[in-house]
Computed example of a mutant assay.
Amino acid sequence: MFLKSLTHWINKGLELFLVVCLAIMAILVFANVVLRYGFDSGIAVSEELARLLFVWLIFLGAVLATRQHAHIAFNSFLAKRTPTCRKLLVAISSLLMLVGGVIFVIGGWKQTLINMDNSYPVLGISYAWLYGTAIVFGVGLVLSTILNLWESVTSPTGFPGGDE
């Protein structure tokens, strides 16, 4: 029960963060377009900040989609299999996703360390904020995959996230 409540609040927090990122991006880009075409000026930080927010939006959105089972799946293929076979197939795909998540964490960590001293020209913040998304994504993917695998193994039908 605690785990379900915790994941619910983490999902809601991620959704809120994504909405805020998207709103800031939309405002920055719209304001910059109006200022450039209407007043021949612009907001200097808007391009860099919008690009950085877009990267965070994509990676955290992928973590959220993984947890909510919103990625493309072959449920019609799984539906024709026995629950034991479903669990085995979900376990195999989960193992591959875990490997991918670990690769993201390791690669993101290395890139973050390499680019720690480099900074954005206008924003002035470290590029670690860009490459750190890979670490956060990898950890989120690993945790989401473990939870999805647990749901699949404990489900009588073998479907992660509930009955199909």
Rank of each mutant, 00 (worst) to 15 (best):
V34W: 07
I146F: 08
L35E: 00
K87W: 01
T7M: 11
V136F: 13
R81T: 01
Q68S: 04
G101T: 08
T66A: 05
F137E: 11
M116D: 10
G101V: 11
L123V: 00
L147C: 10
N75D: 15
F104K: 07
I72S: 00
A134W: 10
L149P: 02
V99D: 01
L143N: 14
L96Y: 05
G108K: 08
G140E: 10
R51F: 00
T66S: 06
I24R: 00
F39Q: 05
S119H: 06
V90H: 07
L57C: 09
L95D: 07
P121H: 04
V19H: 01
D40K: 10
M25N: 03
T154Y: 14
N32L: 04
L35P: 00
V45G: 00
I125S: 02
V105S: 13
F104W: 08
G161K: 04
I135F: 05
W109N: 12
K12E: 04
G132N: 02
L149W: 05
H71Q: 10
G61M: 05
L18G: 06
W150H: 11
V105Y: 13
S46F: 03
G101K: 04
M97C: 11
F17W: 14
N148L: 04
Q68V: 02
P156K: 15
E164M: 10
E164H: 12
L78N: 07
T145D: 05
N11P: 03
L130F: 00
F77V: 06
N11T: 10
V90K: 06
D117V: 15
Y37D: 06
A44D: 10
L113A: 07
L96E: 04
A70P: 04
L113D: 08
I103D: 13
F159E: 03
A91F: 04
I103Y: 15
A65G: 09
F17N: 15
N75R: 14
I106S: 11
G158L: 02
F137I: 11
W9K: 15
P83G: 10
